[in-house]
Simulated scan of single mutants.
Amino acid sequence: MITLAIESSCDDTAAAVLDLNLSHRHRVLSNVVSSQFDIHARFGGIVPELASRCHIEAIWPVVHEALADAGVSLQDIDLITATQGPGLVGSLLVGFTFAKAVALVRQIPCTGVDHLAGHLLAILLEKEEQRPAFPYTALVVSGGNTSLFAVNNPTDFRLLGRTRDDAAGEAFDKVAKLLNLGYPGGPTVSKLAQQGDAKTIHFPRSWLGEKSLDFSFSGLKTSVANYVNQCQQKKIPLPIEDICASFEQAVIDVLVKKTLLAAEQVGHQQVVIGGGVAANSKLRKQLKGSCAEAGLGCFTPSPEYCTDNAAMIGLAGFFQFTAGSTVDPDTDAFSRSPLN
Results as ranks from 00 to 15, higher is better:
Leu29Ile: 07
Ala133Tyr: 08
Gln130Asp: 15
Phe134Asn: 00
Ala138Gly: 06
Gly196Cys: 02
Ala323Cys: 03
Pro338Trp: 01
Cys110Gly: 01
Leu287Met: 13
Leu125Ala: 09
Asn226His: 14
Ser218Arg: 11
Val105Cys: 05
Leu296Lys: 08
Leu104Ser: 15
Ala278Val: 11
Phe203Arg: 04
Arg42Leu: 11
Ile46Met: 07
Ala51Trp: 07
Ile2Pro: 02
Ala168Tyr: 05
Val175His: 10
Glu126Arg: 12
Gln286Ile: 03
Ile2Gln: 13
Thr81Met: 00
Asp38Lys: 13
Val72Lys: 14
Ile313Thr: 09
Asn152Trp: 00
Ile123His: 09
Met1Ala: 10
Gly324Ile: 04
Glu304Val: 13
Thr81Trp: 01
Thr307Trp: 02
Pro86Ser: 05
Ser302His: 12
Ser9Glu: 03
Gly209Cys: 10
Leu213Gly: 02
His55Lys: 03
Leu124Tyr: 14
Asp214Ile: 01
Leu255Trp: 07
Thr155Glu: 11
Gln270Cys: 00
Gly87Tyr: 04
Ser34Ile: 01
Leu139Trp: 13
Arg336Asp: 09
Cys291Ser: 12
Ser142His: 10
Gly44Ile: 11
Phe319Asn: 08
Ser35Thr: 15
Leu22Trp: 00
Ala292Ser: 13
Gln286Asp: 14
Gln286Arg: 15
Leu88Asn: 10
Glu129Gly: 03
Leu238Pro: 08
Lys257Arg: 15
His268Gln: 11
Gly314Trp: 13
Lys282Ser: 13
